[in-house]
Amino acid sequence: MRKGKKWLGILAGVMLFAQTASAQMVTVEGYGPDRGSALRDAERLAVENVIGTFIDSKTLVSQGQVALDEIYAKATGFVRNSTVISEGATADGYKVQATVDVDTNGNSALVNQLTAIMRLNDPRIAVVILDHGQRSDWCEAVINERLIDMGFSHVVDANMVASLQDARLLEHIYSGGTSIHSIGSNFGVDFIVLGKLEMDSDNITIPDFKGGYKNTSLVSGNAEITAKIIRFDTGDIVGTFSEDTSIINNSNKKAEKAALKDLAVKAADKVEAKFKTVAANVNTSVQVIVMAWDYQRVEEVAAALRGISGINNVYIREHNGERAILECDSAQSAQTIANMLRRNRNVSMSVSGISGSTITVMAR
């Protein structure tokens, strides 16, 4: 079968974005020498279409293309269900039109692999765990390692924001008392995983059968973490979680150390799940920061965004007389949207920067 026919099937297929928290329905046409081959072709095309909503293919490099080729080769493994709408023989084989249910659950194999490919356009992430001692270093290291294993290549060393901790500024950010837009710009961070760690240990007692309790040689080490994942450019909270654990040992130091190790792994699991959920959201939120004194210029940029195919729900979230924050839902990457804005000749504006899913526009 010629490749042109295959892509004709994509263009002719009706895209049904009936997305739930765990799947995306896509209707496509598949071709092959027989029915089974045509259905497999349709399933592969459905997976390819879903991947296209995650990744701008123009940004792919060789390593990412190899990863995508492996996904395509195992495409049927990412399909939950296929329903044939119509089928029949053609002059050179068989054609099937089917609705394919592609698994986009945050923990699915497909999303796991797509998350790894996100290194091609991945954000800069900083992990900072607030603690009164040095124990937070372990949690930060474990979470950083997990993010790197997921494929994020721009994981920022916490030492880069050490001065913020010294100034107790992150404490204010955690409690929502400080705007973080300028801080994010200064440190070049797109997301921050900001958590608080608390630890203690208790001697374990048992009943003495005389109406009281007696000490044992065992100690319970207790550790708890609460965290927020924040977009550094806008201050939006994209995820929160809390975890706690208790480990028994024969000394306070050993019990607390074991509890800390266990807690760090649990926290890393939660961070991974949160970022996978973001990756699994087909229509992602794109932030457009407009530098403009005149509110009319902000509205002109908003109108330009609404005129771009594939963009929905453009909102002007904030305008303080100098800058405005626009938010829109789109299946396209920030890079693609920025390119379309650059080509718009009806509005006097220039794209001055792209970071993760945020575009900065000058419209003065």
Rank of each mutant, 00 (worst) to 15 (best):
V314M: 08
N249Q: 14
V193D: 02
I117S: 02
V14C: 10
D236T: 09
I289K: 07
G239L: 04
Q24W: 00
G212H: 09
I148R: 08
L110G: 01
Q134F: 10
G321C: 04
V66P: 02
V96G: 02
G221D: 04
G307T: 02
E318C: 10
F191C: 01
L114C: 04
V142R: 02
G9H: 10
I311L: 03
I248C: 01
M362Y: 10
E198H: 05
D190R: 03
L326C: 08
R40S: 12
A167E: 14
D131Y: 05
I325W: 04
S182D: 11
H181S: 13
N105Y: 09
G64Y: 07
N215P: 06
I247Q: 13
I71A: 04
S57M: 10
R297L: 06
V219H: 03
V79E: 00
L170Q: 06
A73F: 11
N144E: 13
L8T: 12
N186R: 09
F275E: 00
V238K: 03
N121V: 14
V301Y: 00
G212A: 14
S201G: 01
A167V: 10
R323H: 12
S333G: 15
I289R: 11
D157V: 09
T240Q: 14
V61N: 11
S57F: 11
N346Q: 12
M150S: 03
E322N: 08
R364Y: 11
F232L: 15
S330A: 13
R2V: 12
S182Y: 07
V14W: 05
S330T: 12
K196A: 14
T358G: 01
T240C: 07
G36E: 14
K257T: 15
I117W: 02
L114H: 00
D329C: 02
V278A: 09
D200G: 11
K274M: 12
V84W: 00
A338N: 09
V156G: 02
F232V: 13
A141R: 05
V189F: 03
A264P: 02
R35I: 12
R2F: 11
S357V: 09
V361Q: 04
T216P: 01
V100R: 01
D269T: 10
S62T: 14
L120H: 09
T234M: 05
A303Y: 00
S251K: 05
T59E: 14
S201T: 09
Q113G: 06
A280S: 15
Q24V: 14
R135A: 15
A141M: 08
M150D: 05
I55H: 07
A302P: 01
R119E: 15
Q335S: 15
I337M: 08
E300C: 00
T27I: 03
K261P: 01
V156Q: 08
G239F: 00
W293G: 15
S62A: 15
K228I: 14
D208K: 04
S22Y: 07
V61K: 08
N252Y: 05
T360N: 06
A89W: 03
E43Q: 13
M349D: 00
A268Y: 01
V219L: 04
T277W: 01
Y174T: 10
A324W: 04
D208V: 11
L110V: 02
N203T: 15
N312D: 13
I248G: 00
I183D: 00
A280H: 04
L170K: 03
V290L: 11
D202T: 09
A304M: 04
L45N: 09
D200M: 06
L147T: 06
I237A: 07
